[in-house]
Amino acid sequence: MNCRTFREQLADLVAGELDSPQRAAAHEHMQTCEQCRELARGLEAAAAVVEADVVSLEEAERQTAALTPPKPHGVRPAIVRRRYPRLSTIVRYAAVILLAFASGYSARGWRADEDVSEALAVDGASRVSGELVDRYTKATEQFPNSSALSRSLLALAQR
């Protein structure tokens, strides 16, 4: 074997893909040719570095057993603190203020401050009195899927 043939078979030699007669011939050439020997040894050492930390599939299975599948939209499980209140919360409070203010206005003129604070102190519009509340309730029955704000507006529009 000459240097040219050796180098043609170098990849197979380093990768262990040569059959035994070919391998024997290559090793024989390496004993007589320092340059080819150094080249092959250097590449074998590099392959050893690359393969140094290859674990078995069984070991990899153990290491990944606790992993959960990724969630859609690239959302990783994490605690996300909400910076602003939910829109539905804002709409609910807006409806309560609107109803309380409007009912205060309809019953006693513009003296609604007390009613507003009272309405906000309790949960929702249950304590807000007046016919607007009835209209609001009716609107809710009529349009169960509508938002609190649109029901309030509907109730006001029916006055």
Binding site: V55, S56, L57, A60, E61, Q63, T64, L67
Partner: peptide
């Protein structure tokens, strides 16, 4: 396939936590 991906990632990164991140 997660174990297979971990195996590749660990062979390259050589850090368990980094390899788990790669799998994800």
């Amino acid at each position: 396939q997660r174990a297979r991906v971990y195996r590749w990632a660990y062979a390259m990164c050589r850090r368990h936590d980094d390899a788990l991140d790669v799998v994800q």
